[in-house]
Computed example of a mutant assay.
Amino acid sequence: MIPLRHTLLLDFDGTLVELAERPDAVVIDRPLKALIGRLAGTFRGRFALVSGRSVAQLEGFLGETLEGVALIGSHGAEIHIGSSRVTPVRPPALIEAEHAIRAMFTNREGIVVEVKTLGVAVHYRLAPEAEPATRALVQSLAIDNGLAVQEGKMMIELRAAGHDKGSGIAALMRQPPFAGTVPVFAGDDVTDEAGFVAVAVLGGLGVLVGPERETSARHRLDDVSAVRAWLEQAA
């Protein structure tokens, strides 16, 4: 059970929902929606999703379920708390880079190009042999356009620089009702490591989801099912 003076921060893919072969194919079941609703009530506004997905994508998946839930999207660049909205403008350089990525991969079998508010992710889960070419293009575009590269599970993303999940969490924790509480953040990917560091600095703790590996998280849960069971106790 998480004490009521804590803030609950959860990654989405691989933490709340199982990873899918395509980013638009994740399954949002009714028990999950009900659980999110109960957690929003239990934590009284001190509950946030922290995702590499854009806020618009999260809202598309969860809709009204997100009432009372803060959102950190686009790897920390977007922060939505109640009626407060921070959403930077999409850089022109990212738009140009997106065109180059689409030109190379749109017709490549097994490659999924995911366009986000402040990023473009290339998923090669269905075509692992394409990893070298994918990585080379994204890294070249990052250098040429002053953008950041974000690694992930069987994907690589080109995104606006200057933000990560750690910076997003730090900004969130300065705002009411989060300020002065102890953050607990659960995530599964290397993209979540900055978040684990941020909550540790604030006196909180990170929870790694998945197999053991080198991490800044102090605790670990085996998988999405274990996360759900833990959250059911907290709710």
Rank of each mutant, 00 (worst) to 15 (best):
R125D: 05
A161L: 06
G166I: 11
F61L: 12
H75R: 10
L202K: 01
L118G: 08
A133W: 08
M104G: 07
A142E: 07
A226C: 03
S54K: 07
L205Y: 15
F61I: 01
H75E: 13
P31Q: 02
K116Q: 10
I72T: 12
V69R: 00
V115D: 10
I28K: 10
G41L: 01
Q139F: 03
P3Y: 04
L231K: 00
V199W: 02
L141I: 12
E67V: 08
L147E: 12
D13M: 10
P183A: 01
L10R: 01
K153T: 00
Q139G: 04
E96C: 13
R46Q: 06
L205A: 15
R213N: 09
A142F: 05
V182T: 12
D144L: 14
G195T: 06
S225K: 12
V138G: 03
A142V: 04
L94Q: 11
V27M: 06
V201P: 06
A48H: 06
K165A: 02
R108Q: 11
A198M: 06
W230T: 02
R53M: 05
M155T: 11
A198S: 08
Y124D: 12
R38N: 00
M1F: 11
A20W: 11
S74D: 07
F178M: 03
P23M: 03
L39C: 01
P23F: 01
G206I: 09
V224K: 04
G63Q: 12
I72K: 09
L231D: 00
T106C: 09
G180W: 08
